[in-house]
Nucleic acid binder design. Sequence first.
DNA 1: GCAGGTGTATTATAGTCGCAATACACCAAT
DNA 2: ATTGGTGTATTGCGACTATAATACACCTGC
Lengths: 129, 129
Amino acid sequence: MNTLSALFRISPSSGVPIYRQIIDQVRSLIAAGRWPEGTMLPSVRQMAVELEINMMTVSKAYARLEADGLVERVRGTGMRVLPTNVVGNAAQRKSELKPFAQELVARGRQLGLTSEQIQAVVQSCLKEE
Amino acid sequence: MNTLSALFRISPSSGVPIYRQIIDQVRSLIAAGRWPEGTMLPSVRQMAVELEINMMTVSKAYARLEADGLVERVRGTGMRVLPTNVVGNAAQRKSELKPFAQELVARGRQLGLTSEQIQAVVQSCLKEE
DNA sequence: GCAGGTGTATTATAGTCGCAATACACCAAT
DNA sequence: ATTGGTGTATTGCGACTATAATACACCTGC
C-alpha cells in the first residue's frame, strides 16, 4: 500500500508551492508524534515518485526542515527526526490548526453562512473520512 | 472607514497568488448575495491602495471574473455584478465552503487531533469574531 | 469641452517555482 | 571493492506572479 499518499495531501493546483505543502505537513506529522524521534523520513526519491513530483522539490523542502532544526541530515542514510521538536501538548497542536480554522470561518462568513452552518460543513467532512 | 479590509482577507505570504485570492473572495461575496445584481465592484485603484497591492493585479483578477461571467465590464464606469450568478441556495454555498473544511480536517488529523478537538478549534474561532 | 473617474495595454524588471538531466559525495550491506 | 541506497549541486529551461511607470480609450458630471 501507498502510505505516503495516505499521510500527505498535495495539491499542485492550489497555488501554494509544493515544497511548502511538504514542509507544513511534515511539521504537522512530527508535531503530532506520528513520526517519533529517530524516525527516518521517506527518501526524496520515494517521495517524488509517489507524489508524482520532482526529486529536487522534495530535497529543497527537506533542506528547509533541517535549517529549521526539525530534522537531521545523516549522510548516506537519510533524514532523521530530531527529538526536541515533538509537541506533545494538545493545546499547542490545536494552535497550529487555528489558522486553517480562521480561514474557514472567514470564508464561511463571506458566503453568508451562520456559525451553525459552518460547523455543519465541518461535521459532514468529519463523517466522510 | 475601510470597508474593503473588512470584507477581504488577503495574505501575500500565503503562497496563493494575490489575484487568485481576490477572485475566490469576490466569488464568495457574490454567491452570498452581499453584492447583489447591479452592484459595482470597488475600483481597481481603490482596491490596490487599500490592499496595498498593484493595480494591474486587481485588473487581472477582474478580467478573469468577467471571463467567468460573474461580472460585466461597463466602459468608463467599472465592473457590475451580473444577475444570474447569485447562489441563493444555502446548500450550494455550503458546498463552496467544503474544500476549506476538508483541508482543515486533513490538517487536524495530521496533528493527531480528534474530531472533538478539531471542532473545538473551529468553535473558538467562531467565538472570537 | 474638460476634469476626473473607470478598466486596460505595454514594456521592462525581478523573483519564485517546478522540472529535467547529470553528476557528485556519502554510507550500508554484501 | 562493488552495488545500491541516501541527499545534494549544477545548469538550463519554461511558466507564473507581481511590480513599476506610462499611456490609452472610455464614460460621467459639471
